[in-house]
């Protein structure tokens, strides 16, 4: 095929004005494009012609939402455990808005919580884990604790997964555009009791087995204070920049009044404690960053063959204060030291 650029001197000269002379993607663009592809093909085509669509004005918000939506899905695939999606047509402001975060939680209004619950359930039932046949489950979850800080909040939910009926936890990070408009940014289904890990997501994305280090950490704490807890570090793209947040949630016994988590990256953070549950989240990573590995120590490689570096989860100190005013220091061990079952003695 004749390329006029090669034969026409004027066209050749014009090519010097080309503002984008190369068609290569940056690494970030490549990751985003892969996530975009998954997002687009997760839904059956509408069958409307491109020409008809082209004549219809699209809002930038909708377009931006597509890009926003694409990122966590890809992240979830890369992680292999836990499934996360956004669930809103709105894009939050720059992730810098997490500056409204405070080390002490705020009380969440019941009406706000109810709206957040609907938004999170909607997100949970539209998970996009990249499975060939789509998301096969339905979840009816109810909030058990909500940790609100500034314009952002983490809602921890518990519900039944159908089919199967397994009990699952879910955590849902929300940006409140206003108190009446919850915008789900990331929802993660915690499969430790639900059996989601039995599905082929691991085989799809990590043929060597589930990821063990960093990113997601589930463990049972053999203690009357913290019978079980789930901790994770997640990252997503908000507006134009990558955002990382860490969270920890689980059960507490009835006599626990307060929990103060001594984080590496955000200082002392007080958790929200409600009805036998606690939740806490903070912007930033859990700890330092290390290569992601499979169970057998094989490094996790991205599409370019480069090692995936993620936040390491070191030991974390927690001050537990009982209703009687007594306090006790406990330590969540670093990942790799507990392997899912630890004893606090």
């Amino acid at each position: 095929m004749t390329n006029r650029r090669d034969t026409d001197p004027l066209i050749h000269l014009l090519s010097d004005l080309n503002p984008v002379s190369k068609e290569a993607l940056t690494k970030t663009q490549r990751i985003r494009s892969q996530a975009l592809l998954q997002r687009i093909t997760a839904h059956a085509p509408t069958g409307k012609s491109a020409a008809a669509n082209a004549g219809r004005r699209q809002t930038t918000l909708k377009i931006r939402a597509l890009r926003w939506a694409a990122i966590p899905a890809a992240t979830a695939l890369a992680i292999g455990i836990g499934i996360a999606i956004p669930g809103s047509p709105l894009t939050p402001p720059a992730a810098a808005s997490m500056h409204s975060w405070t080390p002490e939680p705020e009380q969440i209004e019941q009406t706000t919580l109810a709206m957040a619950n609907r938004a999170c359930n909607n997100a949970l039932n539209n998970l996009d884990p990249g499975w060939p046949d789509g998301w096969p489950f339905e979840v009816d979850a109810l909030p058990v604790v909500a940790d609100l800080r500034g314009d952002w909040g983490l809602v921890v939910m518990e519900g039944l997964l159908r089919p199967g009926g397994g009990l699952v936890d879910a955590s849902c990070l929300i940006w409140f555009e206003t108190p009446d408009i919850p915008v789900v940014q990331r929802v993660t289904l915690d499969s430790q009791r639900g059996g989601v890990e039995q599905r082929p997501i691991s085989a799809e994305s990590s043929p060597q087995g589930n990821v063990t280090s960093g990113q997601r950490l589930n463990y049972q704490l053999i203690s009357p204070l913290l019978p079980s807890a789930s901790a994770s570090e997640s990252r997503f793209i908000g507006a134009e920049e990558e955002t990382t947040f860490s969270n920890l949630h689980g059960r507490v016994s009835d006599d626990v009044a307060r929990l103060i988590v001594h984080t590496v990256t955000a200082g002392d953070v007080e958790a929200t404690v409600t009805d036998g549950w606690f939740a806490v989240w903070w912007p930033g990573e859990w700890g330092d960053r290390q290569p992601l590995q499979y169970f057998d120590g094989t490094p996790w490689l991205d599409a370019d063959g480069a090692e995936v570096i993620i936040g390491h989860q070191p030991a974390l100190g927690i001050t537990v204060i009982t209703i009687g005013g007594e306090s006790r220091e406990i330590v969540l061990p670093a990942w790799g030291e507990g392997h899912g079952s630890i004893s606090l003695q």
């Binding site: 687009i40 085509p45 012609s49 669509n53 597509l66």
Partner: peptide, 25 residues
């Protein structure tokens, strides 16, 4: 990107493929 700049180029590209998928047949 040549036509709308970097900030909007990715949005346009995303919409292009979303529309292309809908009309893929």
């Amino acid at each position: 990107t040549r036509r709308v700049g970097e900030s909007d180029g990715e949005d346009v590209a995303a919409e292009v493929f979303a529309r292309a998928w809908n009309a893929w047949h």
